[in-house]
Design a binder for these strands. Structure first.
Lengths: 337, 337
DNA sequence: ACTGGTGTCGAAAACGTTTGAGACTCGGCG
DNA sequence: CGCCGAGTCTCAAACGTTTTCGACACCAGT
């Protein structure tokens, strides 16, 4: 492990000079700076992040909270994609990504906030968690720079996809395709669910369409068995819908499965609509019609804004950022009449 | 931010004593230790990881290299699941997980190894990368405790799933179901591919089955369009196979899609076999017959062994660990004759 | 009474870096 | 000639821990 001291010795200058030269301070002569840098490179020097962090109170490390609701932390396609994009932008800006957790062996476990302070994260990104968990709220309310994904808190930056226009646009598309009897199996209660559901009701009213009570059902996100059952129920109705909206793309597979079991075909017998636009939706047959959220942009914007907030806490206004998506016209919605 | 110093003042002892009490050294009186611990808890103390790391050369941080081949880093279902399990075990043992990357803003980018040293990782886990990348090889050959996943290096711990018996068992199952004309679309060259392919040839020979050259094809992992094309080619053969093996579960979707386009049914007209056992395979219709790798165990074992290696470098023999899986009998293979 | 051991505790150095306050040199200007 | 400012560079303290070594007290055994 080679240190500032070694470079100083090799160059015949003091450690302070080396440090300043490497950090680009302007009270070092241009030629000595270059000489020092050259030597440092040759010796394969890199700083010790711990020492640097200790002195500067900056770790260039961002904590990511990605809780394991039902073990689907990283395997949650939507969030994994967002996170991946977040990570790439953060890394390009020189930040590393570390997961926040509350384990931490030494008997008494740390809270998310304590863990974040312990590691000295410069900022924190929260996604895919129970936002009502007091431990999460503590973290959000702390003084740390924070950005949340798919959920908004007052006075904090959040990046949310445009669920309202998403549902609006999808419904309009389906309407254009001639559908009038539209059912919606929505996800379990959450801010996201509320927005979509609200938009569903409003848009249906706007289109002058009736919504029989039996057309509104509920199922967990990313579950296929439950949406499968819901689908059967809908099919058995006296007047079944011609099109069914599912909580998300993955759970729409439950619809495919139910229909196939009844020897019905998508979309000829019934049309299916998802939400998310995960990779899968474009690879199943027939391709799923869905609202494609711009996960890449969500992750990127989240990282960009968070870093801005870290670097210039005063200049950035903390408010929700809406990321628009677009209707993906797959093959799962039939034109009827 | 509350420090050792503050606790020391509050307790009327020295910082040294507080440090030792909190770390459980045995040269501190039991009653003072308890007193100090209580006060520390009340004041909400937690250590400063940077200072601790600086002194002890231990970060309790594990680096994970998960490269972005084709942007599918975290969205790679198989590796995401393994990583998630790895992460849970590591965190339970008090280790944090940080991604290794080679960006690092300050103009000249760090190598993976340099980055790992910069952050002072106690150990490193490598998965889902090009193992022939010289930068990766550098990292592997370093003095750091390392575990690799799905690829073995001499003298290093690696956790690999049992591709050989996986292919063997799958073939036997399909044989039992009456299939004799079996095609294999294998993945692009890699250690994993080689093992599976080798096992395929050997087991077919063992079963006394012929393998027409046209039955062996190649397609990238996790691609559906290419496997779709391959499927068409196979179907158009004078004597098409009755069963097709795909590189992995996801790419098997290409098979489903091709068959549906030809108005053929799975498995009545043709049988389909995947490899991996990702979540998806159990949720599509008909359910995919595949070899289910025990990703949870792979991640857990990788973490356990790595931590062992970190804690007791001398006691652990570094060698590959084979994790067995099991044939998952879905609905995509028909019994024939 | 002296020795040796044991059990508690504290002083201080060290880890590798950053940074403000000064020190020195050298021109240029009044 | 003296002074000032600009340009370079160094000193030394500091960040929050851990850890070695020694100090001190107390007790048992001789």
């Amino acid at each position: 492990m080679i240190l500032l001291k070694d470079i100083a010795a090799a160059c015949g200058v003091s450690v302070a000079t080396v440090s300043k030269a490497l950090n680009g301070h302007n009270d070092i002569g241009p030629e000595t700076r270059e000489r020092i840098r050259k030597v440092a490179d040759n010796m394969g020097y890199f700083p010790n992040s711990a020492a640097k962090a200790l002195k500067t109170n900056r770790t260039f490390n961002i904590g990511v909270l990605f809780a394991d609701e039902a073990r689907s932390g990283l395997t949650h396609d939507f969030f994994a994609t967002v996170l991946d994009s977040f990570r790439r932008t953060a890394e390009a800006a020189g930040f590393d990504i570390t997961f926040i957790n509350s384990s931490h062996a030494q008997e008494r476990s740390l809270s998310y906030l304590a863990h974040s302070r312990y590691r000295g994260f410069d900022g924190v990104c929260i996604a895919c968690v129970d936002f009502y968990d007091p431990d999460v709220v503590d973290l959000v309310r702390s003084e740390l720079p924070i950005v949340t994904i798919d959920h908004s808190f007052d006075g904090k930056i959040s990046v949310v996809s445009d669920n309202v226009s998403g549902m609006h646009d999808l419904l309009h598309y389906v309407y254009e395709m001639g559908h009038r009897r539209i059912a919606y199996i929505h996800g379990l209660p959450s801010a996201v669910t509320q927005n979509r559901l609200m938009s569903f009701y409003r848009t249906m009213a706007e289109l002058g369409l009736a919504i029989p009570d039996e057309y509104i059902m509920e199922a967990p996100y990313r579950s296929t068995s439950e949406t499968r059952d819901c689908t059967f129920t809908l099919l058995d109705l006296p007047t079944p819908p011609t099109c069914i909206f599912y909580p998300d793309d993955f759970s729409a597979l439950g619809g495919y499965s139910a229909l196939q079991q009844r020897k019905l075909s998508v979309p000829d017998d019934i049309s299916i609509v998802g939400f998310d636009g995960i990779r899968l939706s474009r690879h199943i047959a027939p391709r799923l019609t869905t609202y494609r959220q711009d996960m890449e942009q969500m992750g990127r914007v989240a990282a960009e804004r968070l870093i801005e907030l870290i670097e210039h806490p005063k200049d950035v206004i903390q408010e929700p950022i809406l990321v628009p998506g677009s209707v993906y016209q797959g093959e799962s919605v039939a034109r009827i009449q």
